[in-house]
Nucleic acid binder design. Structure first.
Lengths: 135, 135
DNA sequence: CGGGATCCTACTCGATACTG
DNA sequence: CAGTATCGAGTAGGATCCCG
């Protein structure tokens, strides 16, 4: 079985003190970035922004995600309190996911970053091309 | 990714577009996130915000980073045009790193995210504890 | 001092098959 | 429908050695 809490959380003291002092200590940043910096989390959050969705709907809206990774991602987000999971006692089963209030507050910062990425990507690509050409 | 914020109902998520068809804005988000979503990039960017720094200074300000990972991270950031690398022809050698203008524009969004992470982390930890206790 | 080269472990992720 | 179980490939990242 794949443990849900597979995060080691062993190097908690690595961030104490000096680093990232201009933005406060980076303690939570590492943990949060490890979670939403993975392959699917931000994508799930963005998709859930439109409202409550079923598992299969999420899968359809996120092309390329496997059943396993969607399940794992949703479990992690649920554990972190960013997403709620509601199971309806029906046949066939129906499970719906929705952003929590906390999850909703991530939308703003995530948007800021996403817009930066879109705006900066042409220059990044150009820089890569220039760099690769020099080598 | 504008859709993360208030998305026009007529416009599909940039993420979706990137997955469904590999052209358009969303493609950059995946690439950029893959780069700065790694273990050290954001930390290096944040540290370089204070100004030009030598390799060894960076290593001291970022506890836990190995020589190899710092080198790799800096090379990637340099390739993407976010950081400049200046080698001074001296003995012993001196190499200094500095944010480019493009790299500097990342500070804003990164700060927004970092502040969210710091603010949300207590609630995330609480949610994790509650989740783990229910299981 | 600032790396490059090498080896190695642990984890991520995908594919597939099975189930209540 | 919405998962779980299992396997295997690929890779991020750490440790160590050496070099200009």
């Amino acid at each position: 079985m794949q443990p849900l809490a597979d995060a080691p959380a062993t190097h908690r003291s690595a961030y104490e003190g000096s680093c990232a002092s201009s933005h406060g200590d980076g303690r939570g940043i590492r943990e949060v970035l490890d979670r939403i910096g993975d392959k699917w989390s931000l994508l799930v959050i963005a998709t859930l922004e439109r409202g409550r969705l079923r598992f299969s709907e999420l899968q359809q809206h996120i092309p390329g995600v496997s059943q396993r990774m969607l399940t794992l991602t949703l479990r992690h987000l649920e554990r972190d309190g960013l997403v709620t999971r509601t199971v309806h006692a029906e046949v066939p089963p129906r499970v719906e996911y929705e952003l929590t209030d906390l999850g909703g507050t991530l939308i703003g910062p995530a948007s800021a970053f996403a817009e930066w990425a879109i705006a900066a990507f042409p220059r990044i690509e150009a820089a890569r091309a220039a760099y690769d050409e020099r080598v």
